[in-house]
């Protein structure tokens, strides 16, 4: 303690100088627009750089899991393909339909930043406006819904996570098509609520909840979660607790969904409102 005091007294000139300089530069950065902009620019670049490095390193560690996940999805897709081969009559394929258009297309992107422990969580992916990503596009992963694109820069896109209290997703029960709204519980990264399901619907624990496709953002039938518990709070609707199917703690690759008919649907909806 005495030594520390002596060091401070011996170097008081230097210390005072440092204090004044730090004070001055904090004034500079806080009160001058140009310098403030430069400062934030540089610090943001640094942050982006380091989080990319970190992501690269950890991605290497989890390669095995990613491989398994991709293999799983491959198998699923192959199964679906086989089913289609069986069910689609070969005649249909030869019909030329000029008005037919692909409804959705998918772009893969890698998550570079993610959070699960806030009330309003966001994540960032490494595709941006140069990859024709636009705001309001849906983001999904093999395990279910991830979120909606909020804003884009040239190379990055900011995504409102499903774990964000501002986000509501139109959802339905897979077995009987009753639809409601999905929202995050705000407490744990794997718990959510389903609202607006009337009391006469027959529910069971373990029922699958999928997206309804009504909003034209998400394709129909993307997995959201499973019912873990439900109760009657006294009213018209159930209180339903869900387990979110996606594990947001190990999100790695996601798909960004382009919906080609969204504009069309929106235009019509607008007309209906008028």
């Amino acid at each position: 303690m005495r030594n520390l005091l002596r060091i401070i007294i011996n170097n008081q000139f230097l210390l005072l100088f440092l204090i004044f300089e730090i004070l001055s530069y904090s004034f500079v950065v806080r009160n001058n627009n140009y310098q403030q902009g430069r400062y934030y620019n540089v610090s943001q670049n640094l942050h982006g750089y380091f989080s990319r490095k970190k992501e690269k390193f950890f991605q290497y560690l989890s390669l095995r899991e990613i491989n398994l996940e991709l293999a799983d999805e491959n198998a699923k897709l192959k199964n679906q393909l086989e089913q289609l081969k069986l069910t689609t009559p070969t005649k249909l394929i030869s019909i030329k339909d000029t008005t037919h258009k692909q409804m959705y297309s998918y772009i893969t992107a890698k998550v570079v930043n993610n959070s699960v422990n806030k009330q309003y969580n966001y994540l960032m992916v490494d595709k941006g406006s140069l990859d024709s990503i636009k705001p309001e596009m849906a983001v999904i992963s093999p395990n279910g819904v991830v979120g909606i694109v909020e804003s884009v820069t040239d190379h990055y896109a900011l995504i409102i996570s499903l774990l964000n209290r501002n986000l509501k997703v139109s959802a339905k029960i897979k077995k009987n098509n009753y639809f409601g709204a999905f929202e995050w519980s705000g407490t744990s990264y794997n718990k959510g609520h389903l609202t607006d399901i009337p009391l006469h619907v027959k529910l069971e624990k373990g029922d699958t909840i999928i997206t309804s496709g009504y909003s034209a953002t998400f394709p129909e039938g993307v997995l959201l979660g499973y019912i873990t518990d439900f109760s009657d709070p006294g009213g018209n609707f159930f209180n339903i607790d869900l387990e979110i199917s996606n594990d947001f703690k190990k999100l790695n690759y996601v798909y960004i969904v382009t919906c080609f008919r969204k504009e069309e649907q929106k235009k019509l909806e607008l007309k209906a409102k008028q």
């Binding site: 100088f17 004044f20 300089e21 004070l23 001055s24 530069y25 904090s26 004034f27 500079v28 950065v29 806080r30 009160n31 001058n32």
Partner: peptide
């Protein structure tokens, strides 16, 4: 420091002259 910050206040460059004067001292 006081000299620098006083000039800063009048030229809307808060902190710049203060930093320069402190370094000079």
């Amino acid at each position: 420091f006081l000299l620098g910050i006083s000039v800063d206040v009048f030229t809307h460059t808060l902190g710049m002259h203060a930093a320069a004067c402190t370094f000079m001292a």
